[in-house]
């Protein structure tokens, strides 16, 4: 299993992040996974090569607070979450409106959601 995981809840997030920001941890990234019953979020932090993962689950369509007040750089992974998993983030300072990495021409909206993959989600044969 994943090392250095700390299970938290959505309400604790800002408090925990504020504590880490005070201790000079570096935000690596935020990973979101569609588990089938909701979205699993992992916030990766690093300090002197030690990895710390804050983890919590949310339901589809639930919003999460932005951690940009403590880590401005979080707007990049948060915009990614919006693009790929459709997670709405409140108080984003730089909001790309779902067009950070994917564009209007992308055929599948919110591509990493399971239901977006559709019924034909078998093995793909590249064209």
């Amino acid at each position: 299993m994943l090392a250095g995981v700390k299970e938290i809840t959505k309400d604790d997030l800002l408090e925990e992040v504020q504590k880490l920001a005070g201790e000079n941890w570096r935000l690596i990234s935020i990973t979101g996974t569609d588990t089938g019953s909701g979205i699993d979020l992992i916030y990766h932090f690093d300090q002197e090569l030690t990895l710390l993962n804050l983890r919590f689950q949310i339901d589809y369509g639930e919003t999460i607070p932005s951690i940009t007040p403590y880590y401005f750089c979080a707007f990049v992974p948060e915009n990614e979450l919006k693009d790929f998993l459709g997670v709405e983030v409140t108080n984003l300072p730089v909001d790309y409106q779902h067009l950070f990495i994917i564009s209007e021409l992308t055929p599948v909206k919110i591509p990493l959601l399971r239901k977006a993959a559709g019924d034909d989600a078998g093995e793909v044969k590249p064209e």
Partner: peptide, 27 residues
């Protein structure tokens, strides 16, 4: 950073890549 989640099938469940340039954009 590579985050990989697998569930014992032949495909991966989640394959996440965080490349260095993405992290270097805010600086």
């Amino acid at each position: 950073l590579y985050y990989i989640k697998a569930n014992g099938t032949k495909s991966l469940e989640r394959f996440r890549i965080r490349t260095p340039t993405l992290s270097n954009l805010p600086p």
